[in-house]
Simulated assay, not measured.
Amino acid sequence: MKKRVILIVLDSVGIGELPDADRYGDRGSHTLANIARAVGGLRLPNLAKLGLGNIDVIAGVSPAERPDGLFGKMAERAPGKDTTTGHWELAGVILDKPFPVYPDGFPPEVMETFEKAIGRSTLGNVAASGTEIIERLGEEHMATGAPIVYTSADSVFQIAAHEEVIPLEELYRYCQIARDILRGDHAVGRVIARPFVGVPTAFRRTTNRHDYSLKPPGRLVFDVIAEAGREVAAVGKIYDIYAGQAISRHVSTRSNMEGVDRTLDYMREVAQGLIMTNLVDFDMLYGHRNDPEGYARALEEFDGRLPEILAALQPEDLLLVTADHGCDPTTPSTDHSREYVPVLVTGQQIPSGIPLGIRSTFADLGETVLDWLELPTLGVGQAIAEVRHAGL
């Protein structure tokens, strides 16, 4: 049997605050429900058929009488609410402490070492919105050639540079230098290249972003799959998030819709194993920019493409749709939010209409992937029993 799993991560599509959300300043966050309320209801008929409206109350998304699969939500066990922590937990690595963050900027020992290594001074070194900081410092950057360094509430060291001032390859080299420096106590989750173009008052970020992640500190679901001689195909920023560990093929994308296109391509090409996709527009373009209308449009666009994915499923395929954290665009914060994430499970062998309740860790999804592929467990979560029984 040539079994496959297609795992789609809707980046930041959270479904309500976790019990410890207060500790993160996220009381009241509910990405899906608050967006729906802000725009007068979401139109997501295909996600509704899979049971999205059965998980929680979301205006416009009616509960299905008998959803086409299994539905529930998952809590993040690891501390934090960043992309790397969430994705690593999905794939079987649960952190016991959060990545370091720098709300007041990076300390002198980091910045002085970085500036000496690249031979330039820098601008910024503050926590800021990416679009705001290039508007504020972009003109000075163009005049001086000094790259802009900034962070956020997440564990990131971001370097913004105009593509005509610091060429892409040079920017990427700076990021690799920063990645090599940021180890030990300063081991941030990601170093991110943030290139932009344009002129003062009209700057815009380009799609040439590149992430430099830490290598996961343990075995992933991917390692087990690769050791069994099967493929791990990554779409979007999946390759970057996991630093390429045990990934057999990958493709970058410039938009959610291109991510869906490349997922469908891999569904035609990959015979057995895992296809994992990250659709980042929800988070990058709308969540962080507090744009519920744009977020709603992006959700509805994905929903419109879902029938193509469902039609491409083979008899031995399992489709999992989930998220990695929240990013509620209706709150004053522009940062991620500590939320549950939805989990929707379907496939030709999957029973209909079964609620999964609340899973205690994202790692349950990774264990479910291994279980479906009939591979050894990592022992960090519990495979969804209803999926196991369906595969017998």
Rank of each mutant, 00 (worst) to 15 (best):
R305K: 15
H336I: 10
L365K: 14
N278L: 12
C327S: 13
Y340V: 12
E339A: 05
L319P: 06
A271N: 12
L313W: 06
P307S: 13
E269S: 08
G347E: 01
F282E: 05
E269D: 13
I275Y: 08
E308W: 12
H325F: 04
T361E: 09
G287P: 09
F282D: 05
E293D: 15
P332A: 07
R338E: 05
D364Q: 03
S352F: 10
G353V: 11
V280L: 14
V343R: 02
R289C: 06
C327D: 14
D324M: 09
V341R: 02
G287N: 07
G366A: 07
D328H: 11
F362N: 11
I350D: 00
E316H: 15
S337D: 08
Y295L: 10
D335M: 10
S333E: 03
L319W: 03
D324S: 14
D281A: 07
P292G: 00
R268P: 04
V341H: 00
E339T: 10
E339H: 02
L365A: 10
P315E: 11
S352K: 15
T322G: 01
L310I: 12
A311D: 13
P315A: 07
P307Y: 08
H325R: 00
L310N: 11
D317E: 06
H325I: 10
L274C: 07
P307Q: 02
L299P: 06
P342S: 04
T277W: 05
P315H: 07
T277Y: 03
T361Y: 11
Q314S: 15
R338P: 11
S333W: 00
T330Y: 05
G287R: 01
G304K: 04
L306Q: 11
E300V: 03
H288W: 03
P315L: 05
H288V: 06
G304V: 08
E293I: 14
M276G: 13
S360H: 13
D317W: 11
M284E: 14
S352C: 15
Q272C: 15
P355D: 05
G326I: 12
S337M: 01
D317Y: 12
G366E: 02
G304W: 00
S333G: 04
L356F: 05
G287K: 01
L306N: 05
L285Q: 13
A323S: 10
P307E: 09
G326D: 07
Y286P: 12
G326Y: 10
Q348R: 15
D317V: 08
S333L: 03
E301A: 14
G304N: 12
L320R: 10
G304D: 04
L274E: 04
S352P: 12
R289I: 12
G353F: 03
G326V: 10
I350P: 00
G273F: 11
L344H: 08
L306I: 12
P332Q: 13
A271D: 15
Q349A: 14
D291V: 02
R268D: 13
L356Q: 11
A323F: 05
L299E: 03
L319T: 03
G347I: 04
G353Y: 05
P342E: 01
L274H: 01
F302W: 00
L313Q: 03
E300P: 00
D335H: 06
T277A: 13
T277C: 11
T330R: 03
I350E: 01
A323T: 08
L279Q: 00
V343H: 04
P329Q: 00
